[in-house]
């Protein structure tokens, strides 16, 4: 069984928001819903040594899922391959998962009365394709694959670089790993 994960190389991300737009189009999201924003930290430092980092955010597909535990209907589920998804037929829009998610990854869709989130483009992954945001990233800052396959690019990157997981101290064990580029840019 695969264990899907994403590595985000912030050294490559230029903050163009192509992934944000591609995701919105692919998932046909209403104007006021965004699954994967790209935030910007900085510029920090003192001229001429200024630096800035862009951080693409999305559902972290946590291993310990506070969202799934909070869901009273069983609509929030985690598959064996690590993808966390919502069975929209069962969701009643109670927002318990929205409040439980430490990453702000879940959004209430007012038109449908349900909560929605990034599911690593489950429809595409099941057909052997990569998520839409990964495909659309012209800088190849998003790398998706099977962590259990030692020959996959995600496994190689994760093992060869110092990666961090956001809010790791909360113990939710995200499947999204970040390579931070500040030191690299400074050099």
């Amino acid at each position: 069984m695969a264990r899907y994960a994403m590595v985000i190389d912030t050294r490559r991300c230029i903050g163009c928001q192509s992934c944000t737009v591609a995701c919105k189009v692919h998932n046909e999201l209403p104007v006021d819903m965004i699954y994967n924003p790209v935030t910007t930290v900085g510029p920090t430092g003192v001229f001429p040594n200024l630096h800035m980092v862009h951080i693409p955010l999305l559902c972290m597909h946590c291993e310990n899922t506070p969202c799934v535990d909070a869901c009273p209907t069983g609509a929030s589920l985690r598959r064996e391959d690590g993808i966390v998804w919502i069975d929209e037929k069962k969701c009643v829009g109670c927002k318990a998962c929205v409040m439980a998610c430490p990453y702000g990854a879940r959004i209430f869709n007012q038109e449908k009365g349900i909560v929605q989130k990034c599911d690593f483009c489950l429809d595409r992954v099941e057909k052997g394709n990569i998520p839409r945001c990964v495909q659309s990233c012209h800088q190849k800052a998003r790398i998706f694959g099977d962590l259990d396959d030692p020959n996959s690019e995600v496994a190689k990157l994760k093992n060869s670089h110092h990666t961090v997981r956001l809010l790791d101290e909360l113990g939710s064990k995200p499947s999204v790993f970040y390579i931070y580029g500040l030191e690299a840019r400074m050099k």
């Binding site: 009273p72 209907t73 069983g74 069962k90 009643v92 829009g93 449908k112 009365g113 349900i114």
Partner: peptide, 13 residues
């Protein structure tokens, strides 16, 4: 709830 008529589902998990 976003879908009040489905409220019975909150008894499920």
């Amino acid at each position: 709830l976003g879908r009040p008529f489905q409220a019975f589902r909150v008894f499920m998990n």
